[in-house]
Write a protein that binds this DNA or RNA. Structure first.
Lengths: 138, 138
DNA sequence: CTGAATCCCCTAGGATACTG
DNA sequence: CAGTATCCTAGGGGATTCAG
């Protein structure tokens, strides 16, 4: 896994402390992962990748149970990170549309594997959980 | 993106409410994504995929700044979901080792694309943020 | 319609201390 | 060494209201 470069801790005594990596890079990777790997970002990414440019309300409907607060928040972050473009049409009532940038699309592609994995392994996860819980109880 | 099957909202009026999908599947996919896409799960997955079976303390050191509480929690969830195997060696002092299952490995592979993406786009994200913040301020 | 702002609850998650 | 248990706080995130 190529991300090793970001946390190349390599060989060190098993001390329980923070790693020796450039704290700069470390922090940034963590931040990016923490941001980008969040549930709503993934879903918005997926929706926009599949359905193309969408306006706010429609995006909310397509995203299954997101609150408007979280959707706004997520979209702002994604806009700031250069993942989506926000287009305001100066009409009344207001019309605002969101679409993925090239970078956004590339991230959506990167996440594609995770989506397919989740679909493919839902059943096995449920089984594993049941087994684990049973073993724990019995 | 194949996850469409899980949230096939298709064509519906732009009403802001919960989608028409099987709430069962919907909830499960969201749960799995929410669990599996979390930061520490991704990191532990990455570390175990790269360094192979590791014991608790070493795993903590390799994971860069995780608290032992979060690490324990993450490992328990992953064990329950069948992503890792926990092996207790009956010696003193205690020795417990964790390794990925086949399913764990497959998930690690699925996340590989996201890691490489994050690495490759760190600089562009920083630039985008700076630009966004500048525009907002100016 | 889009979204900012406010209120508020609740849990994620850190620090610390204690066991086997 | 590998946890579990406890305490505690910042912030995630829902509901509601207001504005352009």
């Amino acid at each position: 896994m190529s991300a090793a470069a970001a946390r190349p801790v390599a060989e060190r005594p098993a001390i329980f402390d923070h790693p020796p990596v450039d704290p700069r890079v470390e922090a940034l990777v963590n931040e990016v992962i923490g941001r980008v790997a969040d549930k709503w970002t993934m879903i918005v990414l997926d929706v926009l990748a599949e359905h193309g440019e969408q306006r706010f309300t429609r995006l909310a409907a397509l995203s299954g149970g997101v609150s408007q607060k979280m959707l706004t928040q997520t979209l702002r972050q994604m806009e700031r990170d250069g993942l989506v473009v926000r287009t305001v049409h100066p009409v009344v009532p207001p019309k605002v549309e969101y679409r993925l940038t090239d970078m956004g699309f590339s991230l959506a592609e990167a996440f594609c594997g995770v989506w397919t994995w989740a679909e493919a392994h839902l059943a096995r996860i449920e089984t594993a959980r049941a087994a684990f819980d049973a073993a724990k109880a019995g």
